[in-house]
Simulated scan of single mutants.
Amino acid sequence: MTEPTFWLTIVATGLTALVIITQAALKGWRGWLDLRKLEIDSRRDGQAQASAPSPATPSPTARIELADLKERVRKLEAIAAGVDP
């Protein structure tokens, strides 16, 4: 048990394990920091949008799309109820 190669192997294995664990922890830390940065940016964007004035009336395109969606919902409800649309 006093062979130098044995202890050198143990030390090298421990050092390798330490490097792997450190790299994994560093990658996790960077990921967490990126996540926090995205959260802060989304809050900042949300505040900027909240302070911007909203349009009083929706655009004609949005109104047409909304009417189309309402019509589709009516047809689907009629099909579900068994009534011919």
Rank of each mutant, 00 (worst) to 15 (best):
residue 1 M to K: 14
residue 1 M to I: 13
residue 1 M to P: 06
residue 1 M to G: 15
residue 1 M to N: 15
residue 2 T to H: 15
residue 3 E to W: 11
residue 3 E to F: 11
residue 3 E to D: 15
residue 5 T to R: 10
residue 6 F to Q: 06
residue 7 W to I: 07
residue 8 L to E: 12
residue 9 T to S: 08
residue 9 T to R: 14
residue 10 I to N: 07
residue 11 V to Y: 08
residue 11 V to L: 12
residue 12 A to K: 09
residue 13 T to V: 08
residue 14 G to E: 01
residue 14 G to S: 02
residue 17 A to R: 03
residue 17 A to T: 09
residue 18 L to P: 02
residue 18 L to V: 13
residue 19 V to G: 02
residue 20 I to V: 05
residue 21 I to S: 12
residue 22 T to S: 13
residue 22 T to Y: 14
residue 22 T to C: 07
residue 23 Q to Y: 06
residue 23 Q to I: 11
residue 24 A to T: 08
residue 24 A to H: 12
residue 25 A to Y: 13
residue 26 L to K: 15
residue 26 L to M: 12
residue 26 L to C: 06
residue 26 L to H: 12
residue 27 K to D: 06
residue 27 K to I: 05
residue 27 K to E: 14
residue 28 G to H: 15
residue 28 G to M: 15
residue 28 G to P: 03
residue 28 G to E: 11
residue 29 W to A: 12
residue 29 W to Y: 15
residue 29 W to E: 10
residue 30 R to E: 15
residue 30 R to I: 10
residue 30 R to P: 02
residue 31 G to M: 13
residue 32 W to Q: 11
residue 33 L to E: 09
residue 33 L to S: 11
residue 33 L to P: 04
residue 33 L to T: 11
residue 34 D to L: 07
residue 35 L to F: 11
residue 35 L to R: 12
residue 36 R to N: 08
residue 36 R to G: 07
residue 37 K to E: 15
residue 38 L to E: 09
residue 39 E to P: 00
residue 40 I to N: 13
residue 41 D to V: 12
residue 42 S to V: 15
residue 44 R to A: 07
residue 45 D to T: 09
residue 45 D to C: 10
residue 45 D to Y: 14
residue 47 Q to W: 14
residue 47 Q to Y: 07
residue 48 A to P: 01
residue 51 S to Q: 11
residue 51 S to Y: 05
residue 52 A to L: 10
residue 53 P to S: 06
residue 53 P to V: 04
residue 54 S to H: 12
residue 55 P to S: 06
residue 55 P to I: 04
residue 56 A to T: 08
residue 56 A to F: 06
residue 57 T to H: 07
residue 58 P to T: 03
residue 59 S to Q: 03
residue 60 P to W: 00
residue 61 T to R: 14
residue 63 R to M: 04
residue 63 R to T: 07
residue 66 L to N: 11
residue 67 A to V: 00
residue 68 D to H: 01
residue 69 L to Y: 08
residue 70 K to G: 01
residue 70 K to M: 04
residue 72 R to L: 02
residue 72 R to F: 01
residue 72 R to A: 02
residue 72 R to Q: 04
residue 73 V to A: 03
residue 73 V to W: 02
residue 75 K to Q: 14
residue 75 K to G: 03
residue 76 L to E: 03
residue 78 A to P: 00
residue 79 I to T: 08
residue 79 I to L: 09
residue 81 A to V: 00
residue 81 A to H: 00
residue 81 A to G: 01
residue 82 G to Q: 01
residue 83 V to W: 02
residue 83 V to K: 09
residue 83 V to Q: 04
residue 83 V to P: 00
residue 84 D to W: 05
residue 84 D to V: 15
residue 84 D to F: 12
residue 85 P to Q: 03
